[in-house]
Amino acid sequence: MFAGFDFDVLIKSLPFLWLGMQLTLQLTVLAVGGGLILGTVLAVIRLSPIKPLSMAVAAYVNFLRSMPLILVIFWFYTLIPRVTGTSVSSFYSVLIAFIMFEAAYYSEIIRAGISSVRRGQISAALALGLTPPQAMRYVVLPQAVRNMIPVLLTQSIIMLQDTSLVYVVGLRDFLTSAEIVAGRDNRPIELYLTVALVFLVVCFSASRLVNLMRRRYSL
């Protein structure tokens, strides 16, 4: 079945595929970074005692979490140019969509991490004479961060996989580049199996690393 497997096609299209991979990585890094920042802000607001604000954030988070990512991408792809009145490159519209979407997920993870620290810990810290911010800084956050880092990393691996959805607006990421070559040279088997294998190796190793870390630092 692999007798006709054409490695030449792969080798010839390697530079093109690598360009796609660069876009995939770029998008992932920027979306993870932006998503984390926005997600942290959202989580803090969500946990704040100001009811209307925390409810507004809760609504935002639940709203985005009930939408398919593809639909979110379409929303921003058509929305941004119309709102700003200027044409924005599809890269930026997609990046903003990813950041807004991921932030909803990240904020839930961060919130859960903070809530997972037992209340008794705060009581104990306060009983020792620490101020509430000190209790947060020295007792709650170190434990919370330990709890949420593996989950955040796992979510980021999912994010890396999700970037392939930029295909729907024609942005040339790794998968889309492969699709272009597959169509042009009529070699779907070689190209799609390669894409699957590359992602499998990258994501599997990454998740193994997360597991290793979790065990090493007993996270």
Binding site: M1, Q161, S164, E179, Y192, A196, C203
Partner: peptide, 23 residues
Amino acid sequence: VELFRNIPLLAQMFVWYYVVPEL
């Protein structure tokens, strides 16, 4: 589990649609 969760769903979709029938 490792096979199916470490490949993007969209790539899996293309494999099922364009590759599997050929094989």
